[in-house]
Design a protein around this nucleic acid. Structure first.
Lengths: 346, 346
DNA sequence: ACTGAAAATGTTAGCGCTAACAACAAATTT
DNA sequence: AAATTTGTTGTTAGCGCTAACATTTTCAGT
């Protein structure tokens, strides 16, 4: 199989009858090219299927075409999905992703981020929770003038562009959906108080009940911590109540899975006697039986958008960016599976 | 903070009083450098903390310093862990990892792999299961002369270097451990028959019983398919037997989790009345309660070794490599958690 | 039409490294 | 001692691209 020699910028230039520099400008979105030339060049680019040589580009330019990703908690399938989507997008845009794991020791994390900036010269960073709320990390990046995008941050929302979904609205919708299915005895297991989303989800639940004029006894609210174990404890309490709920909305899938396990142990049928809804749509939601109804975060879209934003360079200088333009709220999706159904016990 | 300008190969050369080429040779493990010079250069490299510029190196050399990773099944936390470890090692060795997801349509996968070879010019590929057993993929790589390492392959073991663990021995050890804990009524849930590991694990289980002179009724063997659902069905059958097993060894964690769920539903205490052991040490093993005793695969080591082997170039020409040298078997680890314990019902 | 500024395009040099070959020194043979 | 071989180091050119500056074209304003 003859190697069809990858086209170089020179080939494009010759074919299009312009200089290499003009081609370079077209490819780098430089404004100073006439539309006519741009079209002509792009046509040749298509024709020759030209892709810039990342290494040559990196070597010659001040940009590094590297983006950094700082994550925590590697066991989460969330990371895995985010990472894969980010890698894909990077590849499409001619960037490389340098992945760095946060240390439990924050000082080491800071050191590692500094190294990343110094050695790899990243053009931008993506910060995943909970690192995205760490003041020290933010300061290091700001000082080094490295643009960064934060994913579902909890605080300091005007310090950088960020991407999130509307946790409040999702919780509201979940709760209202249960109400529409005939449930009025709806319990909630709150997530880890240290994470902002727990608050938002709880508030969405409360407001959905209130706007539907449903009064809920305080025993229907249990404090969890996002772990399976805490979900079990909460479930045991909720299911020992004299006036049992007909639906339990857990603030994440792990706790929802625990509820299902406890309910089944007690001979309570799911979903006919008890509807269970989770949050996140992690792998667990489709492993256990019955599969968990849940809220799906747009993880892929978040990852892609983060890369796109950093690659565009539009946040390289934040001084002129309005705080409203920092916010990117993506759509979630309610996923109905076998763990919830209409209430037939009325 | 003054930017301490990264050292270049020229800086090293001047400081060491040699030519740039000599430094380059030292760095690329070229044999034709005297020990004295090598040491001198390395000392300066250390002193200046010199790291080669990957882009310049890639641009100038015939190697691409890209390695490819072909995976399947992105939801698995196995992938995530493997990927992170591989990325880390790549970074340490100055390589970049290009990650490609296998399509459900095999023709598209082939096309994608061809692209990877053509466009990215990868120096090597890592194939994860089950793609590592796909003849077409193997053929494409062989034809294009791209070295590849396969992870836990099932067949054609002499076609390429591969990395795996001893599934047979692990299953043997798990079973023997249960026997040593006083269990003699040990059931097994076999994994998906399409995967070679299922066979190996089953055989290990059988041989451990045999070598301990334990006779097991055929009802103790159930066929599963690695899914939670199949684990539930198997568990229901096993726990409805008149002479119930005191221990169940499931061929993966998902099925073990299902067994725990069913047992608890039936009021059977784990581990005092029933020990459950899984395989793989996936996230699930520590999510459910009680945590699942299981076998941990050395995923990180596998990933690191795969990268190291490809980066070393030692498999660039397979014609002189003995088939024994293709095999890399790594150690597994038995992890004892709360789902299993000594048998007290004797 | 003539000027000046702005817009569009071209030219030159070099980013940091290695392939290919050249040159030299040391070891070995004739 | 000269000739050959072997081992080690140096020189030159160029990988594909872009920064910075140079030049040409366009077009308004007079």
């Amino acid at each position: 199989m003859a190697d069809p020699k990858r086209a170089r910028i020179q080939d494009v230039a010759e074919q299009a009858g312009v200089s290499m520099m003009t081609v370079s400008r077209v490819l780098n979105q430089d404004k100073k090219v006439s539309d006519k030339t741009r079209e002509k060049v792009m046509a040749v680019v298509e024709q020759l299927n030209y892709r810039p040589n990342v290494s040559a580009r990196r070597l010659a330019s001040t940009k590094s075409f590297f983006l950094g990703l700082l994550y925590d908690n590697p066991s989460d399938s969330y990371i895995s999905q985010f990472l894969l989507a980010a890698l894909k997008k990077c590849r499409a845009l001619g960037y490389h992703l340098v992945v760095d794991e946060a240390h439990t020791d924050i000082d080491k994390t800071i050191e590692s981020v500094k190294q990343l900036i110094d050695v790899t010269q990243v053009d931008g960073m993506i910060l995943l929770p909970p690192m995205c709320d760490n003041e020290q990390v933010l300061d290091v990046l700001t000082k080094a003038n490295v643009p960064f995008v934060r994913i579902t941050p909890d605080t300091k929302l005007n310090r950088s562009p960020y991407i999130c979904m509307d946790d409040y609205q999702a919780a509201f919708d979940v709760t209202e959906h249960l109400i529409n299915q005939g449930h009025s005895k709806i319990a909630h297991i709150i997530g880890d108080t240290k994470q902002g989303v727990s608050r938002l989800r709880y508030q969405g639940y409360l407001d959905a009940l209130r706007s539907n004029k449903i009064i809920t006894p305080p025993e229907y609210i249990e404090q969890g911590s996002f772990t399976y174990q805490s979900g079990m404890e909460a479930a045991i309490k909720l299911l020992s109540l004299d006036d049992k709920p007909t639906a339990i909305f857990a603030a994440n899938d792990d706790m929802a899975a625990a509820v299902i396990s406890i309910a089944q142990k007690q001979g309570i049928n799911i979903p006919s006697e008890l509807s269970v809804v989770g949050f996140d749509d992690t792998q667990l939601a489709t492993i256990v039986w019955p599969n968990i109804s849940t809220v799906k975060q747009p993880i892929n879209e978040m990852a892609e958008l983060a890369i796109t934003l950093l690659a565009s360079g539009q946040y390289n200088d934040l001084s002129n960016v309005k705080s409203l333009d920092l916010r990117h709220i993506l759509d979630f999706e309610l996923i109905e599976r076998e763990s919830s159904s209409a209430n037939k016990n009325n």
